[in-house]
């Protein structure tokens, strides 16, 4: 079963890197926005979108289908993906 996976991340954040690595290691494609690398209106729009899913606007904010996961919590990510 394929999943729609998207990450709001920071290019400098170790938890964000761990999340991306976990998905890559498990062969799961994903989209991401490194918000710290965005500027101007693009950055404002990305932050407004993060706030919709995660009012604290912390990173990583991970969207798996309709689920929102904040931070790198491998157990929760596995559960959301139906992985053992």
């Amino acid at each position: 079963m394929s999943h729609q996976i998207r990450i709001f991340s920071l290019s400098t954040c170790s938890h964000c890197k761990a999340t991306k690595k976990f998905l890559t290691d498990n062969g799961l494609p994903y989209d991401y926005n490194d918000v710290d690398l965005l500027t101007g209106d693009e950055r404002k729009a990305a932050l407004a979108e993060v706030a919709r899913y995660n009012p604290n606007r912390t990173f990583p904010t991970l969207l798996i289908d309709d689920q929102v996961l904040v931070g790198f919590n491998e157990k929760k990510i596995r559960a959301a993906l139906g992985l053992p």
């Binding site: 920071l10 400098t12 954040c13 710290d36 606007r57 912390t58 990173f59």
Partner: peptide, 17 residues
């Protein structure tokens, strides 16, 4: 060090400066 280069100070890398 990336953040110090970018912002001039060592801002926490896990938070948006």
């Amino acid at each position: 060090l990336v953040n110090r280069e970018r912002y001039g100070y060592m801002s926490c890398p896990c938070r948006l400066a």
